[in-house]
Amino acid sequence: MHIEDGILSAQACAAYYAVTAGTLVPGVLEIKRKVSENTYYKPFLAMVGVSVFVISAMHLPVVVTGSCSHPCGTPLASIIIGPFASIVISTIVLFFQALFLGHGGITALGANTVSMGIVGSLSGFLTWKLFRACRSPLWLAAALAGFIGDLATYLASALELAISLHGNVPLVRQWMIFFMGYGPTQLPLAVAEAVFTAAVLQAMLSRRPDLLPNILTKREMMKRKGFNAND
């Protein structure tokens, strides 16, 4: 999903920058609010930010397609630090990846943030919330958030390219053509991201559930502390 310079038109780049700027405001406000509420939020933010940097630059080979791709890490980030804070983190991550690692372009930074930051974070977070609202087990909700957040990122990236470049070809057709460039390789990695998201969240909660307020329901929290929820 790292779109490079020279592909999108100047108007498209400006539009994606504007969308990104619009979501950075609530992101910064979310960070400020959570820092004042939770003492441990700052180290979480640093840890998650660096993790997203590494995960989204980690190219893994997929034998069935003979190519490599990378997971995103933003679905997990959105669950732990919040969806809008995750967008802020993604913008910083993508900027440094473009600047130092040759991953993506600077003119396409807005477009890459829209796909990985905004769509990846929000789709992962909404999936998580939806399944938790349906009383789904924690591991399942986290895994589905990871899976859907990952694929949604690449669908968004393919859509960005299709919107700019479809010409006389129907938009949906061009979208699917670009997505087929990502999809077959990304599907196994989305499964890996699902496992990773569930495993890391479970590991964090098994050690310090008190550091992650709003992740566990009251009933689950009491169960972990050894109380009977019916008492």
Binding site: E4, S69, G181
Partner: peptide, 9 residues
């Protein structure tokens, strides 16, 4: 074994 990003770009 190239990256899909490069392929789609």
């Amino acid at each position: 074994a190239g990256g899909t990003d490069d392929k789609v770009n």
